[in-house]
Design a protein around this nucleic acid. Sequence first.
DNA 1: GAACATGGTGTCATTACATCA
DNA 2: AGTGATGTAATGACACCATGT
Length: 240
Amino acid sequence: MGFHSFAANTQLVLELGLNSSSSASIPQNPSKISNPTTHHHHHPSLTLALSGDSCGGSSFSNASVKREREVASEESERVNTSGTDQEDEDGSVSGRKKLRLTKAQSGLLEEAFKLHTNLNPQKQKQELAKDLKLKPRQVEVWFQNRRARTKLKQTEVECDYLKKCCDTLKDENRRLRQEVEELKAEKVSTTSQTVYMQLPAATLSMCPSYEHMPNPKTPFTMPPKPHFLNPFTTSSSAAC
DNA sequence: GAACATGGTGTCATTACATCA
DNA sequence: AGTGATGTAATGACACCATGT
């Protein structure tokens, strides 16, 4: 992602809104902040461990952590689909099913997301899950996806912004070039009348290069017009 | 105190399903 | 009714960090 660093300062808009009511437990930086205080208050992974019977207790490893999550979500899926108005095909493993959250559920999740884009896993996730009659894993997934959506949207906004800036700069560039051409023409016409005849032949042969090397004796000054637009420092100068 | 294992959680990319035009 | 587009729940891989040994 090329926008990563650029995105960083704008993306925070949402996240800075947190006023962690449950003090010191919300990771505020979306990237890689695991909070020292949140870890291991261990109510040892209550719901996640529920599925023990289906995957017999082999030794825990890194992979088993993943499996644990996976199984937990399967479990929750089953529970949820039977709990809501969706039909449960009763154990027939026909691929994964996908529940649609109700409006009330997603509304509540949205509210929670406005407050904290990251959940305090020990508390908020559990509580939310309980309130919504969902499994904690589902709440977790919803937040993950929601963060991803937010980020995507942000990236799109930034992309549009940069496009507009690019267009503006192109226009400005075009305008300035045109202006330079006009001024060149103007200068040529005036100098040709006054100086041209007096210049030695050697100088005349160098004439075309004046566009790169302005004559120090008769310094050419541009009219005071805006040359550069820096969209990132000046907000009012550009259209974007 | 360093090294390692384990567990929890994050991001990211992707898949799979539900819904709609 | 069939179909492609879109939205989104869910999954898998991987990384990081905290904690325990």
